[in-house]
């Protein structure tokens, strides 16, 4: 087990370094002079401020040295300074993280509950109408653009019925965004649960459990689901990343002041250090969570080789 964890860390470290390199290179790939692009119309004619920003960002140094400086500050938790607000990037990220984290968790939670429920209904009523209905709901959830679904939910529940607020920071204002996000992410979970259960249902030990005279509920919950859900756990890490990225759109729809909305504003404002910082942060969070999920997966499934 220790060996397995160690190996995951050994894979993770170079991946994180590569991510930082790719994110750092972003700015080099910008067509034209990034400094002039960043300053925009504020001070096009001002050669001094251009030179100052160029030095601040280290653009006067060779590429490898620039990356080295970037990397060493990164290790010390320094993600650079925002050009617009002139505040440290990490501090700004940490400020907006709770809202995004809250939404991600709520969305993931809803997606897991709905996805497993739909998957179980599908498998238990295989090829009958509840199955078709569950499969259809899963398909709709995956296909309907979340930004539009969010707006339509606002229209129905906030504008017409007046049940829920459109924006705000209360728990009530979390319902619609989490619902929108969860419905979108539930589809693949439902499909995995369904196919996993259908696979498990054919196994001999299920027949044994039934012939022992166990109640159907016990067979379903204790014997089938336990094994069918193991592959579902593996895709949770991936789902987490997609939901985290999905919050970017959802925060824009519901005007939630989180990391995603902040990233969009930074992109529009051409605040590249901020854009780089947020993208790096999200990617790093995603791969770290994914590794944790894999380790957990190995821990709950004794059939996995740790070697």
């Amino acid at each position: 087990m220790y060996k397995f964890v160690l190996r995951r860390i050994l894979i993770l470290a170079p991946l994180l370094i590569m991510i930082s390199f790719l994110v750092f290179s972003m700015i080099q790939l910008v067509p034209g002079d990034p400094v002039i692009l960043m300053l925009g119309e504020y001070s096009v004619a001002n050669a001094e401020s251009i030179q100052a920003l160029r030095e601040q960002l280290g653009f006067d140094k060779p590429f490898y040295l620039q990356y080295w400086n970037y990397f060493t500050s990164l290790v010390q938790g320094d993600l650079g300074m925002s050009i617009r607000s002139k505040k440290p990037v990490l501090e700004q990220i940490v400020q907006r993280l709770p809202s995004t984290f809250e939404l991600t968790l709520a969305g993931l939670g809803f997606a897991v509950v709905l996805g497993i429920f739909l998957g179980v209904v599908s498998a238990l009523y295989h090829n009958r109408w509840p199955d078709r209905m569950a499969v259809t709901i899963a398909l709709l959830g995956m296909s309907i653009p979340s930004f539009w679904l969010g707006l339509m939910l606002i229209l129905i529940f906030s504008v017409y019925l007046r049940w829920l607020p459109v924006t705000g920071t209360s728990l009530k204002s979390l319902v619609l965004p989490a619902l929108t996000l969860g419905l979108w992410a539930a589809g693949p979970i439902a499909r995995f649960t369904r196919s996993g259960l259908l696979e498990v249902m054919r196994q001999d030990y299920i027949r044994t459990a039934r012939s022992k005279g166990l109640r159907e509920r016990t067979v379903v919950w204790h014997h089938m689901l336990r094994n069918a859900l193991i592959p579902v756990v593996t895709i949770l890490g991936i789902r987490f990343g997609q939901i985290l990225a999905g919050t970017i759109i959802i925060e824009a729809v519901f005007a939630r002041p989180g990391l995603g909305l902040y990233l969009l504003n930074a992109i529009v404002a051409k605040d590249f250090p901020l854009v780089q910082g947020i993208i790096l942060f999200v990617a790093a969070a995603y791969v770290i969570v994914n590794s944790l999920v894999e380790v957990t997966y190995a821990a709950i499934d004794p059939r996995i080789e740790y070697g």
Binding site: I19, L29, V30, L244, A245, I248, I267, A283
Partner: peptide
């Protein structure tokens, strides 16, 4: 693997912010 480290729409977003 490196590209997959940028989940969902994030990679497309990063590329659009460059281009």
């Amino acid at each position: 693997d490196l590209l997959l480290a940028f989940p969902g729409i994030l990679l497309a977003l990063a590329i659009v912010s460059i281009l």
